[in-house]
C-alpha cells in the first residue's frame, strides 16, 4: 500500500548517496567539535574562545540538520522544512533572549562587573 505524503524514496537508488551525506556530516561534526576543544585549550582571549565555540556549535547544528535530518529548502518538503526552522528559531530565540534578558538584569542588580564569571570574581 502506498503511503500518502511520506515522500518515501527507493532505498536501492539512494543508498550510496545517503551514505556519502552521512559520512560528510560525521566528518564535519568531528572537525567542528575538535575546533571547539582546540579553542578552549588555546591561549586566545576569553571573548574569542566563547565566540569560536558558539560559531562551531551553530555550524554543527546546521551540519546535523542538513546531513542527518535531511532538512532542505528545495524539493518536496521545502515549505514544511522552512516553517519548522522558522518556528524552532522563534522558540529558541524566546528562550535564549529571555535568559539573556533575565540573567543580565539580575546581574546588573547584583553589581556584577561583566558577563564573564571569572571577570566578576576578585
Amino acid at each position: 500500500m502506498t503511503k500518502s505524503n511520506t515522500g518515501m524514496v527507493d532505498p536501492q537508488e539512494s543508498a550510496a548517496k545517503e551514505l556519502k551525506t552521512y559520512a560528510l556530516g560525521f566528518a564535519a561534526s568531528v572537525l567542528l567539535t575538535g575546533v571547539a576543544f582546540a579553542a578552549a585549550i588555546s591561549d586566545l582571549p576569553a571573548v574569542w574562545k566563547v565566540g569560536i565555540i558558539c560559531l562551531a556549535a551553530l555550524l554543527q547544528i546546521v551540519a546535523h540538520l542538513r546531513n542527518f535530518l535531511h532538512l532542505s529548502f528545495s524539493g518536496g518538503q521545502s515549505r514544511e522544512d522552512l516553517l519548522l526552522v522558522l518556528f524552532s528559531v522563534t522558540l529558541l530565540a524566546i528562550m535564549a533572549g529571555g535568559t539573556w534578558y533575565i540573567m543580565a538584569d539580575l546581574g546588573g542588580r547584583m553589581h556584577e562587573k561583566g558577563m564573564m564569571p571569572h571577570e566578576a570574581s576578585p
Binding site: 522558540l91 528562550m95 529571555g98 538584569d105 539580575l106 546588573g108 542588580r109 547584583m110
Partner: peptide, 21 residues
C-alpha cells in the same frame, strides 16, 4: 502552545530581578 513559552519567569517573580522584567 506558543504563549506558554513566554511566561516562565512568573514562577520566580521574587528572585530579585527589576520590576520591568
Amino acid at each position: 502552545a506558543v504563549i506558554s513559552f513566554t511566561v516562565w519567569l512568573h514562577h520566580f517573580f521574587t528572585m530579585g530581578q527589576s520590576a520591568g522584567v
